[in-house]
Write a protein that binds this DNA or RNA. Structure first.
Length: 448
RNA sequence: UCCUGAGUAGCUCAAUGGCAGAGCAUUCGGCUGUUAACCGAAGGGUUGUAGGUUCGAGUCCUACCUCAGGAGCCA
């Protein structure tokens, strides 16, 4: 065996450009079938998979013997002729000429992940290997595009990225459970649950800003929608009202879905997502906007028809079954606005037409994926904000700097936050957010 | 925190209270067009842990551990 140095290096995803040429691929043995004196090794290289063909009579004996006994997921460099074949799923096969093994996995420690089905617990314990499978790789590629498209939307709309601290001295909203840590003895520090308060400050400095980074929630939530560590992208804009905020969210989500459809139809097919559901998102027409009162009425009607189990109580937040019902009435994400102030955060501006309501919006993803965006217009009055902080029993001294923003040149401003993982789960059509991030952190799992 | 469910071979799962099983993976053998290939053979077990009931427990009872799904809360 000798590496053919004259053959050009290629990736499996780009093989259609090399039809009829001899190329070199660098990757791993994904699967191996054989039929007597004919081997069918399937290779993967991170960009895709392709089946090789190795007739015993057509290659040197050591090449045939090496591949015949090679263990799955051993790493290798393979050289061969790219040939179109109607029997191949991708349309191409590789007539293997030569192979060099980079590392052979020993027989007594076989690769643990099989091509057949496996349980969630086992796969999560082997997440560092699970991500090698085509489906998981495809999801991570879509995730990368979603993150790039999200940042790109703000970067190309005159936003400045201003990332807030991850270590904070207090709770942002004063409600969620936070991860607490010692900060040099006398002080406690907490992992951020939102950068919002900080980007309100940078917005008042720079006008249109966004942040993009990890956030942490220590709540003992154990559902398919929850991670203890997740990524959030948050825009904050001065002189923006609630209607303008909803326009921003709509343009933002439309851009993300457009980018995914532009470059990931193959990945979506591997994942099994119904692409027509995404095409409906970017079809002409606006996202539906529904007031809390209208959504409440919709739920009462649904209960009267027996479509949902429990009647919604006016004044309460919507539960998961409620959100699922509402989102299922529309093909596009639905924006529910003006919730009762009592069930929302202290920093939300009251509706001047009905002070019991907050100028806020939740964007519910289609197909029951729940809330992917939450946002609001912020309180801009010093006195009102101060009384809200008092009413919520939040430590006033920790919020002095936040109050300063209302003391020195306060302006109306609005912003929202989108959880990347819920967005990826929705766009890919996944059962659980744990597959949307390379290494999920959940209530019962911090390994690997 | 509450409710529900599951722990048996490396993996996925069977097994009326009565001999611990299969498929896949691994090893060996066969097959020149296989697509999670197929055919034959071999090796592989403290049935999550600790007690209890019983002539006899993977199976029934108690406690605990681990994981999963849901509720609440959230993105």
């Amino acid at each position: 065996m000798s590496t053919n140095t004259t053959a050009p290096l290629a990736t499996i995803a780009s093989l259609s450009a090399y039809e009829g040429q001899v190329v070199t691929l660098r990757g791993w043995l994904y699967n191996l079938r054989s039929s007597g004196k004919l081997l069918f090794p399937t290779f993967r290289d991170g960009s895709g998979t392709i089946q090789g063909i190795v007739p015993k009579a057509a290659v040197p004996e050591d090449v045939f013997e090496t591949l015949k006994s090679l263990t799955l997921e051993s790493s290798l460099v393979v050289t061969g002729l790219v040939r179109a074949d109607s029997r191949a799923p991708s349309g191409f096969e590789l007539d293997v000429h030569d192979v060099t093994i980079t590392q052979r996995i020993p027989d007594d420690t076989p690769y643990p992940i099989q091509l057949k089905e496996a349980g969630v617990d086992f796969l999560m314990e082997h997440r560092h290997l699970w991500i090698r499978t085509p489906r998981q790789s495809a999801i991570l590629r879509v995730r990368a595009t979603i993150m790039r498209a999200a940042a790109e939307y703000f970067d190309t709309h005159d936003f400045t990225r201003t990332d807030p601290p991850i270590l904070t001295p207090n709770a942002c909203e004063g409600t969620s459970e936070l991860f607490e840590m010692d900060y040099f003895g006398d002080d406690k520090a907490y992992l951020t649950q939102s950068g919002q308060l900080y980007i309100e400050a940078t917005a008042l400095a720079l006008g249109k800003v966004y942040s993009f980074g990890p956030t942490f929630r220590a709540e003992k939530s154990k559902t398919r929608r929850h991670l203890t560590e997740f990524w959030m992208i948050e825009p904050e804009v001065t002189y923006l009202d609630l209607d303008g905020l909803m326009d921003l969210a709509e343009g933002f989500l439309t851009h993300i879905v457009t980018r995914v459809l532009e470059s990931h139809r193959n990945e979506l097919k591997v994942i099994g997502k119904d692409i027509s559901k995404l095409e409906a998102i970017i079809a002409p027409g606006h996202f539906p906007r529904l007031s809390y009162d209208e959504a409440h009425q919709m739920l009462l009607d649904a209960h009267a028809k027996g479509l949902i189990e429990h009647p919604h109580t006016y004044g309460d937040d919507f539960g998961s079954p409620d959100e699922t019902y509402i989102s299922n009435q529309f093909d596009k994400p639905v924006m529910v606005h003006r919730y009762p102030a009592a069930v929302k955060a202290f920093y939300m501006q009251p509706d001047p037409n009905d002070p019991t309501k907050a100028l806020c919006v939740d964007v519910l993803a289609p197909e029951g994926y729940g809330e992917i965006i939450g946002g609001s217009q912020r309180v801009d009055s010093y006195d009102l904000l101060k009384s809200r902080i008092e009413a919520h029993n939040l430590p006033m001294d920790a919020f002095q700097w936040y109050l300063d923003l209302r003391k020195y040149g306060s302006v109306p401003h609005s912003g929202f936050g989108m959880g990347i993982e819920r967005c990826v789960a929705w766009i890919c059509g996944l059962e659980h957010v744990r597959e949307t991030i390379p290494f999920a952190r959940t209530l019962n799992r911090i390994y690997p």
